[in-house]
Structure formats: structure tokens, C-alpha cells
Amino acid sequence: MQTPFSLRIFVADGDPDGLRIVEKSNWIGKALVFPRALLPQVKARPELAQTGVYLLLGPRPDGEGDMLYVGEGDPIRPRLESHYAQKEFWTRAIGFTTTTAGQLNKAHVQFLESRLIALARAAKRLPLDNANQPAEPSLSEADRADMEVFLGHMLGMLPVLGVHAFEQAPKGPAAMAAPVLTCKGKGVQATGYETSQGFVVRVGSQAAATVTPSFAKMAGPSELRADLLKNGVLMAEGDVLKFTQDYVFSAPSAASDIVLGGCTNGRLSWRAEDGRTLKELQEAEAAQ
């Protein structure tokens, strides 16, 4: 069961697209969210003189979707200044520190960096600019437990801040409560369900090995399909492709596009056991 929480977002310069300082109820941490262009002004803030972990986000070189870099700094400021000069892709940054200086040390943020990179690689939702997987530092049992709690707060906040790179398909009772839907066609069959994160296609589902000409001309779906193949989410098995893990798509149509290898309407392509489409199920729920 998810625990409700509240966030306090302070717009420090009065510009909603400028520096935002985000704090979570009953947590020692805080986040600074700001566009790259503001780093020359933001770098003077005391939070960036602390030890912390940070995310850099921006468009991929091909312009289709975002990519991510995860880093740590002791303190953060010199690392961001280096990336400002040397990394081209990023357009916004999120830095995590604590409300009181000195509550995180170098080993703590190295642990957080390692865990975040591992989670992003497992979720396979955004390509990473990090070349390697850093090893976890040696932490005491108590420190490790504390950092797992700190990480949990971060992961709870990030989707609210528009970052979904670490989210994997939900499991457990909440996921099982959703009706399982099926998408069939072109000799393949896939199953999935709706969640608050998006539409989940389940492990073992099939996808078409070939795509239609119209699909091939659509940059977004084509790039997503290429990413899924590159990351091993889709693997060839005989004449079809197979999902090697549960995978969250942004919408039912994005999921059925990949499954059927064409331009589809997911609300019509996904059907329940009784034959009703997702559209019909949603209309029935709305009428209740």
C-alpha cells in the first residue's frame, strides 16, 4: 500500500520554470530543480555546496525523447560546473541534498548514485549517458538501511517532478486488481493491464518482427522499438519478438503499436476476456 505524502514546492525566483526547491513531508532531504541556463546564478546557493546526488536530463542527440545522467558530488557544485562546460545534452538538473549540511557523506552519495543507475538500467525507460555501473561503496548495515530509506523518498518524489526513468512495472495486489487485456494480430499475442504509471505489457508477450511502412516513418515509435531491441526488452524468438520483462508504456496505443508493428488505437486493440475493448470498459466504468 502506498503511503500518502505532501510536497512543498518553493519557486525561489518567482518563475515557475526557474529554480524550484522541493521538500517532502517527514524527510531530511530536499531537491533543487532548475534549467541549465540558470546554473551560473543557482551555483551560489548553499545547497550545492553540500554533498549530494544529482540527475541531468535533456534530449537525445537524435532529438527523439530524453536521456539521463546520474552523478554525485562532494560537494555537488564543482561537478555541475564541469558538466555545464563539457556535457552538451542536458537542459535541466535535479540535485538532492539534505535540509541540514553534513547529513550525507561521500560513501552515502556513491551508494545512491550506484543504486539509481542500476534502477534506471533495469527499468530501461531512458537511455543513460553514464558509461559504467559504479560499484556500491562499503557501508555499515545501519547506513545502508538509512540510504535505502533516503532513496525511497527520492523515488517517490521524482514522478511528481516529471521523471519516470526509474519506474518499473508495478507488482503485487495493486497491479493484479487491473483486468488483464489481450492484443492479437499479425500472428502475435500480448497481454497487459493499465496502471497509474501507464500501460504495462507483461513478460512473455509477443510482438511482430516486422513493421508497416507507416510505422517505419514515425520517428517516435520507431526509436522506441529500436531502444527496446537494443536494451533486450524485446528479443527475437522464431518468427516473432518476445518481451523479456514487464514493460510500462506511456499509453495503450504506444503498447499496441509495438506489439502489432503498426499505427494502432490502443483503446480498440486491447480487449478483455469477454471481447469488450478497452474503450468499452472505460465507457462502462465512467457510466457507473
Rank of each mutant, 00 (worst) to 15 (best):
G204M: 10
I9C: 14
Q245A: 11
L241R: 05
Q206K: 08
A169F: 02
A120M: 04
G192F: 04
V233Y: 01
I28E: 14
V42F: 02
I28R: 13
K171E: 15
T195N: 12
G63F: 04
G238P: 07
W270R: 09
P221H: 02
T98Y: 09
L181M: 13
T212Q: 10
T97F: 03
T244K: 09
R121V: 00
V240K: 15
A49L: 08
E64P: 00
G220L: 14
S214W: 06
D62Q: 05
M67I: 07
Y193W: 09
G238L: 10
V203W: 00
L224P: 01
Y69F: 14
V248L: 13
P61F: 03
A190T: 05
R267H: 10
L112T: 02
K24V: 02
G185K: 06
L268P: 00
I9P: 04
D62I: 04
Q50R: 14
E148K: 08
M218N: 13
V248R: 08
M176A: 14
E273T: 12
L281Y: 02
S222K: 14
L104F: 08
L55E: 05
R45W: 04
T98G: 09
R271S: 01
A216T: 04
K43T: 00
P40I: 01
V42L: 06
N132Y: 09
E88H: 11
H83F: 08
S82L: 09
R115C: 03
T191S: 11
S250K: 11
V180Q: 13
S214G: 03
R92P: 01
Y193F: 15
L228N: 01
Q206E: 15
G18M: 12
L278V: 06
L260W: 11
A165K: 05
A284P: 00
E285T: 04
S222T: 15
S253I: 00
N105Q: 05
K124W: 00
P46Y: 06
G73K: 06
F10Q: 08
T51K: 06
L128G: 02
E223K: 14
M154T: 02
N265G: 04
L241N: 10
A85C: 02
T182V: 14
L234R: 07
V240E: 08
L38A: 13
